[in-house]
Design a protein around this nucleic acid. Structure first.
Lengths: 110, 110
DNA sequence: GCGCTACATATGTATCAGACATATATCGGG
DNA sequence: CCCGATATATGTCTGATACATATGTAGCGC
């Protein structure tokens, strides 16, 4: 609704995909929309988010330029990242619960 | 998690309460935490949000200074506000669905 | 070799909601 | 008379997202 409407989904989404397997940004950008239920994700913000996660030690990265095509920076989740993802999962469950409360109140008074 | 972690809950919460009955800001501030599952809401932002809703024609306000205590600005939802609330409800249901998808993926790969 | 598209990463900046701080005023009770 | 509860309001910072643009590799058709 209006602008800035999103839910804080980018970081947990990235960590979730990286926990399944290490991969690079472009690949994540292709997979995120399905996972997050959005049409597309902002490319620039994905790369920024990945650098942010790395700065906080939640992922590590490594360049791969031996493969064909442009060089890829492959990201891998760390133990600290896995723990952060667990906390995100808890936060998401709480968020879901809060949404349920609000939706229930909305439907009740209709 | 970290800062600015919320889901866009303030506007739909305010509209939901105002649809039940007209009331003033201070009263809304007392009721919102229960509805939104938060410890407390930011007082300043509630008043700003109410003015914003009024600017967009979703609520109207009227001063009541005949009652004891400080003057109260009582807000009332408009038809346009009711329609906006319906759209918010739809958005919330979609958000709920997106959270479910992500949580499912998280729990699956654990 | 040229233009086109897909692949891949990155920076710049505007906007906006929420967090945090503070100001102002009324009124009742001790 | 001061304090706390009631009541509304503004100022400002930050962080996340939105929107725009830049840069470079590489394969394909012609």
């Amino acid at each position: 609704m209006r602008r800035g409407r999103g839910i804080r989904f980018l970081e947990p989404g990235l960590l979730a995909l990286l926990r399944e397997r290490p991969t690079h940004g472009y690949e994540l950008i292709a997979e995120l929309p399905v996972l997050l239920g959005t049409e597309r994700v902002d490319v620039g913000n994905v790369y920024r988010a990945l650098r942010g996660l790395e700065e906080r030690g939640l992922v590590t990265s490594e360049w791969h330029d031996e493969l064909p095509g442009p060089a890829k920076r492959t990201y891998q989740i760390t133990d600290e990242g896995t723990r952060a993802l667990e906390r995100w999962a808890q936060w998401l469950r709480e968020a879901r619960s809060r949404i349920d409360t609000l939706i229930a109140r909305l439907e009740e008074g209709r």
